[in-house]
Amino acid sequence: MTAHQPPPDATTVRQPPPELSDDLARHVKAWRLRLNPDEIPGLHAERPRTRRNRRVSKETVAALTSYSVGWYSALERGVLQNYSDDFLTRVAYTLRLNEAEKSMLFFLATGHALTITVHQSRMRSTPTIQRIVDAQPWPAYVNDEAWDLIAHNEHMSKWFPWVEAHENNIMRWVFTFPEARTQLHRWDTDWGPQMFAQMQFAHARQPENKRLADLIEEILDVNPDARLFQQQPITYPHPDGDHRYLHLPLHKRLQPIELIAFAPMRAQASRMMMLVPIERDEVKKPQ
């Protein structure tokens, strides 16, 4: 009988090298290097830009996606591995990819297109609704009862680039995208608590809405501040008439706004929201 060979020493075991895609590496790096930091809300507010730091680093891109530097660095090196749709969608938004570039990213990284999940809503976009939104001279949008976007105008796209096929839910952006914490000035006091309370009020009003329940559960799972807001609840049904501040792309100063909300009779849990710029001397003082 032939004796069994001893198992190889653990130190001699070699993992196969990862499969690499030069095309993926070239595209992702080129997309990062073309970024203008001033187009990313909040970056210019955190520190002054100098000629040496005009480029957005890999670390910054990773932080803005809420994934680790390791995951993003692997993507930029062209490593082919099991990237999630959520990760690639956040990368596409952070790198400011257009629709064709986003498709290219998915094909190069995964070999397939983005999987799109369609949620049934009581509110539907119509040509008339879109015309009403487009006619507004300031950012305007319509969201359904679970804060999925139904319609938005070009002004909204300029202030919030994520609405262009990168994220379709207002609350998911507010609570899971790190950029929201800088774009929404005083996020932890003036935006986060109120918007989480809006979801809680809506859920109490429509407990049968599974889409909304799943959204709240997802946010609570990933956002510790949301869990704190849940433990210290406030009652806040809507933001109509609120005055708040925003950091905007290519703007060096904070922009004060008034939030205006309307509810359509056909779906009264939905909202048409307008973000109306106001002057600083119009901002209401806290009571």
Rank of each mutant, 00 (worst) to 15 (best):
residue 238 H to W: 10
residue 257 I to M: 11
residue 260 I to A: 11
residue 227 R to L: 00
residue 229 F to H: 06
residue 241 G to M: 02
residue 242 D to T: 11
residue 241 G to Q: 04
residue 245 Y to T: 06
residue 240 D to W: 06
residue 235 T to G: 01
residue 234 I to E: 05
residue 255 Q to G: 02
residue 238 H to G: 12
residue 245 Y to A: 06
residue 223 N to Y: 02
residue 241 G to E: 06
residue 232 Q to Y: 01
residue 223 N to G: 02
residue 225 D to W: 00
residue 233 P to Y: 00
residue 222 V to A: 02
residue 238 H to C: 12
residue 247 H to L: 10
residue 254 L to P: 10
residue 246 L to M: 11
residue 230 Q to M: 10
residue 249 P to D: 09
residue 258 E to F: 02
residue 240 D to G: 11
residue 249 P to H: 11
residue 238 H to R: 12
residue 237 P to L: 05
residue 224 P to F: 03
residue 242 D to R: 12
residue 234 I to M: 14
residue 225 D to I: 00
residue 248 L to A: 06
residue 245 Y to P: 05
residue 258 E to R: 14
residue 244 R to A: 13
residue 246 L to W: 08
residue 222 V to D: 01
residue 233 P to N: 02
residue 255 Q to F: 08
residue 253 R to D: 15
residue 235 T to F: 10
residue 248 L to F: 10
residue 222 V to N: 03
residue 257 I to Q: 03
residue 260 I to Y: 06
residue 253 R to M: 13
residue 250 L to A: 09
residue 234 I to P: 03
residue 256 P to I: 11
residue 253 R to H: 14
residue 245 Y to E: 08
residue 259 L to M: 14
residue 244 R to S: 11
residue 224 P to N: 09
residue 242 D to Y: 01
residue 242 D to P: 04
residue 222 V to L: 09
residue 238 H to K: 14
residue 231 Q to P: 00
residue 235 T to I: 13
residue 246 L to E: 05
residue 230 Q to E: 11
residue 245 Y to N: 00
residue 247 H to E: 11
residue 242 D to A: 15
residue 259 L to R: 07
residue 227 R to G: 05
residue 249 P to T: 11
residue 243 H to V: 08
residue 238 H to N: 15
residue 237 P to V: 05
residue 256 P to M: 04
residue 254 L to H: 09
residue 258 E to I: 14
residue 235 T to H: 12
residue 234 I to L: 10
residue 241 G to I: 03
residue 250 L to D: 10
residue 257 I to Y: 08
residue 242 D to W: 07
residue 229 F to S: 01
residue 250 L to C: 08
residue 234 I to W: 12
residue 230 Q to Y: 01
residue 246 L to C: 05
residue 235 T to L: 13
residue 231 Q to H: 00
residue 246 L to D: 01
residue 224 P to Q: 02
residue 238 H to A: 15
residue 258 E to P: 02
residue 228 L to T: 09
residue 231 Q to A: 04
residue 227 R to Q: 07
residue 257 I to K: 09
residue 247 H to F: 12
residue 246 L to G: 06
residue 247 H to R: 15
residue 226 A to T: 01
residue 252 K to P: 09
residue 240 D to L: 05
residue 246 L to F: 09
residue 244 R to D: 06
residue 251 H to T: 10
residue 255 Q to D: 02
residue 234 I to H: 05
residue 236 Y to M: 13
residue 239 P to M: 15
residue 241 G to F: 07
residue 257 I to S: 03
residue 249 P to S: 09
residue 239 P to D: 13
residue 224 P to K: 07
residue 250 L to K: 11
residue 242 D to I: 08
residue 260 I to F: 08
residue 226 A to N: 04
residue 251 H to I: 07
residue 245 Y to F: 15
residue 226 A to D: 08
residue 243 H to E: 03
residue 233 P to C: 04
residue 253 R to W: 11
residue 251 H to V: 06
residue 247 H to G: 09
residue 237 P to T: 03
residue 226 A to S: 06
residue 255 Q to C: 09
residue 249 P to Y: 02
residue 251 H to W: 14
residue 251 H to A: 13
residue 245 Y to G: 01
residue 254 L to I: 15
residue 260 I to L: 15
residue 228 L to S: 08
residue 237 P to A: 07
residue 231 Q to I: 00
residue 224 P to R: 05
residue 239 P to F: 13
residue 236 Y to E: 06
residue 226 A to Y: 00
residue 255 Q to I: 01
residue 238 H to P: 03
residue 235 T to Q: 13
residue 249 P to N: 12
residue 237 P to W: 04
residue 233 P to F: 02
residue 225 D to Y: 01
residue 231 Q to G: 00
residue 237 P to Y: 08
residue 252 K to Y: 12
residue 241 G to S: 06
